[in-house]
Design a protein around this nucleic acid. Sequence first.
DNA 1: CATGAATGAGTTTTCATTCAT
DNA 2: GATGAATGAAAACTCATTCAT
Lengths: 196, 196, 196, 196
Amino acid sequence: MPIKKAPEDKKIQILEALNQCLQEKPFEKTSIKDIARAAGVNHGLLHYYFKNKDDILTRYIEYVIDHYKNLFNDWLIEIKTQNLSEKELIAEFFGFMNSRITLNKKLSKVFIEIWEIAAYNANIRSILQQAYREWIDTLSEMLNTVTKDSAAARRISAATVAFLEGMALFSIVLTPDTFDFNEVLTGFQKKIIETL
Amino acid sequence: MPIKKAPEDKKIQILEALNQCLQEKPFEKTSIKDIARAAGVNHGLLHYYFKNKDDILTRYIEYVIDHYKNLFNDWLIEIKTQNLSEKELIAEFFGFMNSRITLNKKLSKVFIEIWEIAAYNANIRSILQQAYREWIDTLSEMLNTVTKDSAAARRISAATVAFLEGMALFSIVLTPDTFDFNEVLTGFQKKIIETL
Amino acid sequence: MPIKKAPEDKKIQILEALNQCLQEKPFEKTSIKDIARAAGVNHGLLHYYFKNKDDILTRYIEYVIDHYKNLFNDWLIEIKTQNLSEKELIAEFFGFMNSRITLNKKLSKVFIEIWEIAAYNANIRSILQQAYREWIDTLSEMLNTVTKDSAAARRISAATVAFLEGMALFSIVLTPDTFDFNEVLTGFQKKIIETL
Amino acid sequence: MPIKKAPEDKKIQILEALNQCLQEKPFEKTSIKDIARAAGVNHGLLHYYFKNKDDILTRYIEYVIDHYKNLFNDWLIEIKTQNLSEKELIAEFFGFMNSRITLNKKLSKVFIEIWEIAAYNANIRSILQQAYREWIDTLSEMLNTVTKDSAAARRISAATVAFLEGMALFSIVLTPDTFDFNEVLTGFQKKIIETL
DNA sequence: CATGAATGAGTTTTCATTCAT
DNA sequence: GATGAATGAAAACTCATTCAT
């Protein structure tokens, strides 16, 4: 009995293949055939499952952002069972961000690519905007649990996310000898927590 | 009917044309003919002045980085005539960075493009690395004039530059209503100066 | 509106188109589009079936040499059914060579082209070397059936093949009024047979 | 006092540069700038001295053929002072041909190139025809001094020249281990002399 | 004579996309 | 749903040629 994959699975298989390809080449230099090869499917199929190459890109970016949103939510559910203080929760949040997001080099590489695409493509940009807004909002809410100045909380959140994205960039673009990524990350975050 | 022009100027004219093009399209989607059109020269000429498309890119990135390095040096000479205190100098430095670099949207757009290219191209990456090292070093030296902890100074410098790059990214990718870029920038920087 | 055709035939169709083109222009002046036009196919298809222009050339030369090797082998099988004496066989061989190879003007023209390419291209040269070695060996074996001096047989074979190639050249480069190609060919070959 | 070269010298300098280039690349792949570089002159000058690239080629072929005709004539004047018998003269002639023409690899390479060009270019072909006719005629006259059958002499001459050209081809296209070029040449020529 | 910037035609190659099978 | 042949647009690059200086 040949097992027929659900069409959704095939799509994900293709998006994962693109994810893999993006470690090697930018999207623009990645051909449909490259993706098909990485996915182990015929290139013609990509046009069956997706409208065109740009559609693959859009679905991919949605998929990546969704994936990490889920990752975060799963972590959040888990962490909330631990009955931590607000400050401890924030510290844990930073730890999660550092290890799973900011210093996840494969992810950071992909995000640099997404930034660039967003810079020139309003459609992609609005997807990315939404993700950043949510991220900043989430952090903002956390900080609001330990400070009364909600405007400051929002400012600090925005700054923190900007800082993390800058560090993600540096983890790809700079060599590790330039400075110690971990120290800079934790140093910054300790300061934030102290400030509150 | 060829018309002769100054020789070295032409190269800059072409690099400026690329700069202009990069406001519209990523480098990969910008054709040699696009650049030639923007420069008002024949496309064949680009191959006369540059080895190939990649050579144009490399020269362009060197040119951009050099340009802003000079801008900074000119500013530094100017500011030093004003006999400011060390802390005032640092504050002025932040002000310069904010207005001329981080919130210079044309520049930030170009830099997002350069990041992406650097992520996949070791040659470009090493050029960019050198620029970031110098930038972090410069800031480090400034901070060292007001603190004894040079390791902390270096960490803060790295964090600050990462933060600024993150803010540059946000200035392009986010809409102004997300948060007030200026407030976040100055809030962060005020904190740094207080900390010292 | 693509129309499917048999797959391996297409390659031969393209190689035959090149063969046709080489009657008009040297390979270097023959464009991919020229070949495609002669083959009645889209030019993009040539890059589907062949790696690049040079690959077409290599496959073509292999194809031509193979084609004439088969032609010879078919003739050899046929002639062996006729129970000729050794000397008669050699005479028949010369006759075959003259009419089917040396004085085959389309073939000679192509071979002058192949010589030139081989002179500058080691890869093609080694293909051609192999063919000449086989040709000289074949003739050598034939002569060995009627003489004991195998070194002499080999020398005569080499000289004969050189002579035939020189005559092929002349059949293209000289006008028929310069001398009678057939007379010179048969005069030379009669002498060879007498000598044995 | 800067010494001005006669324009004829400059032309020869350029033709010699082409000669040099043809050891590396076929004419079609040799650019005007390649030739200019080899000649140590500005590429624009080549258009001053020659109508166009094809004109350079024509002049070059005339120049090469002329050069070797002169070489032969000089040798002939020299050899005639030695009061040799007719057969000795023919033997000396073969010796001269072998060492100076047929086994002159640089020359042979150039001639393979000229053959190819001639195969597709009627203008070049007629120059080459003329040279071959003269060569065959010269040899014919020599053979006529030792035989009465002038038709046979002409046939043998044509065959000999064809053979020599075939050997020139082999000296470039085959590796020396295929057979001993010198032995095959002298073996063939001894036979000719015996036959007479 | 000499230089080298400028032009534009032409070439190979890549690749998203389509569609008959 | 798959497959892979076929199409055609667009890209980078080369280069003979021209000509102002």
